[in-house]
Deep mutational scan, measured.
Amino acid sequence: MVYKIRDKETGKVYEVTIDEETNEITVYDVKTGKPVKTVNMTIEELKEAGYEVEPV
């Protein structure tokens, strides 16, 4: 599923895909559409880390 996340401190917005089964999150560069990095976190962990998470 695709989400937009926003860093509450910097205001930067990222587009991510989240595999609900493995909790693998792939972060994409919004301008190029290319993957930047992959992390292993849940949506709740993202929120605790200071991100706003919205489904696209």
Rank of each mutant, 00 (worst) to 15 (best):
Y51F: 10
V27K: 01
V2Q: 13
K37V: 14
D7P: 00
K47Q: 11
K12N: 11
I43K: 04
D29P: 01
V39Q: 04
I18G: 00
N40M: 12
P55K: 10
Y3R: 09
E44V: 09
V53C: 06
K34R: 12
G11I: 00
Y14W: 13
E45G: 08
V13F: 07
T38C: 13
E9H: 13
T22F: 06
E54L: 14
K4P: 02
D29M: 02
E9K: 15
V16G: 05
V36S: 05
I25A: 04
T10S: 09
G11Y: 02
T38R: 11
T17V: 11
M1F: 11
I5F: 04
I25M: 12
V16P: 00
Y28F: 09
E44A: 12
G11R: 02
V13P: 01
T26Y: 06
G11A: 02
T10L: 02
M41T: 06
D7M: 03
I25H: 01
V16Y: 03
Y14N: 01
P55F: 12
V39Y: 13
T42D: 04
T38M: 09
E54W: 15
I25S: 02
E9N: 12
L46M: 07
K34D: 09
M41P: 01
V39D: 04
E45F: 06
E9S: 12
P35Y: 13
T38W: 14
K31T: 13
M41G: 10
V56T: 09
E15L: 15
N40G: 06
D7K: 02
E15H: 15
V36H: 05
K47I: 12
V36L: 15
I18Q: 04
V36M: 10
T26N: 05
V56R: 08
I43S: 02
T32D: 07
T26R: 07
D29E: 06
D7F: 06
V2G: 11
N40D: 05
I18S: 02
Y51H: 03
M41D: 01
K8N: 05
E15A: 10
I5A: 05
E15Y: 15
V36Y: 09
E21T: 12
V30Y: 11
V53R: 02
T26A: 03
R6I: 15
R6E: 05
Y3G: 05
K37P: 04
E24T: 15
E54K: 04
Y3I: 12
G50V: 03
E44I: 09
I25Q: 01
T10Q: 01
V56Q: 08
M1H: 11
K4H: 13
E15V: 15
K37S: 08
K34F: 11
K31F: 14
V13S: 07
N23P: 03
T26W: 06
Y14F: 10
E15G: 10
E45P: 00
G33W: 06
Y14Q: 01
V30T: 13
K8P: 12
T38G: 05
T42V: 01
I18D: 00
E21A: 13
Y3A: 10
K4R: 15
D19I: 06
T17K: 08
V13Q: 06
E52Y: 06
I5Y: 05
T22Y: 07
T42F: 02
E21H: 12
V30K: 08
E48L: 13
T42Q: 02
E54S: 10
K31W: 11
E15W: 15
P35I: 14
V30A: 11
V53P: 04
V2I: 14
E21D: 11
G11Q: 03
T38E: 04
E48M: 12
V30M: 10
M41K: 05
R6P: 00
E15K: 10
K34I: 11
E44P: 06
K34C: 14
P35D: 03
D7T: 00
V16M: 13
V27S: 03
E20P: 14
A49F: 09
R6L: 09
N23R: 09
K47G: 09
D29V: 02
I5C: 08
D7A: 03
E48I: 10
M41N: 03
A49D: 07
D7N: 11
D7W: 03
D19G: 03
I43G: 01
V30G: 09
Y51I: 02
K37D: 05
Y51V: 02
I18W: 15
Y28I: 11
P55A: 12
V13I: 12
P55E: 11
D19W: 06
E54N: 06
Y28P: 01
Y14E: 00
E45Q: 13
A49P: 01
E54A: 07
E54G: 05
N40V: 13
E45T: 06
E52H: 07
I43Y: 04
D7H: 15
Y28D: 00
K37E: 06
I5S: 00
E52Q: 06
P35A: 13
K34Q: 09
E24R: 12
V36F: 09
P55S: 12
